[in-house]
Structures are given as C-alpha cells and as structure tokens.
Amino acid sequence: MGRRTLRLRKPRGSGEHAAAVVVGCAALWLLAQLVTAAWQAATRAWPWLALLFTAAVAFGAWHTMREARARRVRAQSLARLRLTLTEIDAMDDQAFEFALRDLLIRDGWTAQRVGQQGDQAADVIGQDRQRGRIVLQAKHTKVAGKVGSAVMYQVKGTAGPVHGANSAVVITNGSFTRDAKNWGERHHVHWVDRDRLRRWAEHGTPLQDLLRLPNRPARRTAFRRAA
C-alpha cells in the first residue's frame, strides 16, 4: 500500500469554523505569552547583556590594536633587515623564499610567499601602489650554480597572464648564464645574481632602485604577447 498523504482542507460548516477560530485565538494568545516572557527576560537581563556587549567590543578593540602594534614592530624590525650571503647560502629553498619576501616588505612592498608545488613560476608576489605587482622566482643553488634560459622562458610565460604581474624577477644566490641574462633583458624579465643579491640583501639597496623599476605600473602587453 502506498503512503497516505495528509492534506489540509477548509473548515466546513459553522461548527468547524468556530473550532478554527478558537484554535487561531489560542495560537495568538500563546504567541503573545511567549513574546511577553521573552521581553520580560530581556528586561531583567539587559544589564548583563550590556556588560557582555561592552566586553566584546573592548576585546575586539584590544585585539585590533594588538595586531596593529605587532605589524608596526615587525615593519620596524624588517626596516633594519640585513642578510649576508653566508646566511643566505646556508638556507634551504623554503627559507630563501621567506627571506626574499621579508626583503621585499623591508623595501615597502606588501608581499607574501606563495611558492609551492605547482606555483607556476612564482615564489613571492609583492604589491606596491606606485609600481603595481611584482613576481619573484627564487633559485637557491650552490655558489657556483648557474641559472639557464629555461627559467626565464617559464617566468615570462606566467608572470603576466597567470599572476597579473607588472614586473618579473628571477633571483639566485648563484649566477646566470650569458644567454639567460641577454634573453631576460630583451624580454623584460629582471635578474638578480649573487652580486646584485649582496647589494639588495646585505647593503640594503631597495630592489626597485637596484632594478630601476618604473614608478608607474608598466603595461602588461609584453607579457601577454609572450604567452
């Protein structure tokens, strides 16, 4: 047997109409009693509710001020950040990426480390109001290691189309092949080798000054054409 479905029907006759009116009045009376009880409870408890609200607002303000102070302290600390090549050489790949992020923040950029598997040639992404977005590709290697042109091709193909970058930079604690440097300069992919890294990390020269990045965001047409 199929399941029977209950359906409401309109009252029939004066008796059913009267019963419906009684039920409706009872429901309204019960609702009024509930509203009255709730109002009385709120009236009795309002000092405690006000106290809880004030405490929540005070905690939120304290937490916000604490975070702002922590950001200021960190910014002041990063403003004095200096890293020697010896310290950089001792890092692993991940620590190198975080170091580049901190150096970028020191120079006034808003930056985050994004490097991971499948990062599409972006280990650090920075943002600046005047210079737009910058993508850093980190290549931590041995002192005698060299970065070839293949890395430059990859960065060129993803910096603009994938990450919306105005500037792209490949950074290593080693060096670049001559072809990689020449290709990067022709196709607007900046490079920072060991000597430039010393000037940036150890001597404190801002990256935007080191690479002579324009004050206004460059047009991304060149990146899109390469893709």
Rank of each mutant, 00 (worst) to 15 (best):
V35L: 15
L104Q: 00
K139Q: 00
H140W: 08
L52C: 15
R71F: 06
A138K: 00
V114Q: 01
C25S: 08
L28D: 08
R72Q: 09
F59M: 14
L213D: 03
N166S: 06
A18Y: 13
A37F: 12
L211K: 07
R178A: 15
S175E: 10
T141N: 04
T5E: 12
R12I: 09
E202I: 01
L211F: 07
D92L: 05
G108Y: 02
A38N: 04
E87K: 01
F96M: 02
I134Y: 10
A165N: 03
R71C: 02
A180Q: 01
G174I: 05
Q76M: 10
R69K: 07
R219Y: 10
A55G: 11
A45Q: 12
R133V: 08
V169Y: 07
W62K: 04
G60N: 11
E16D: 05
L30N: 09
R219V: 15
T5H: 14
A168N: 13
P11F: 08
L136K: 02
W48F: 12
D195Q: 13
R212K: 13
R212D: 13
W46K: 12
G164L: 06
A180G: 04
A55I: 11
E202Y: 03
N215M: 11
L83H: 00
R80E: 06
H190Y: 15
Q137S: 05
Q130N: 14
D92R: 00
A56L: 15
R219D: 13
T5Y: 15
L83E: 00
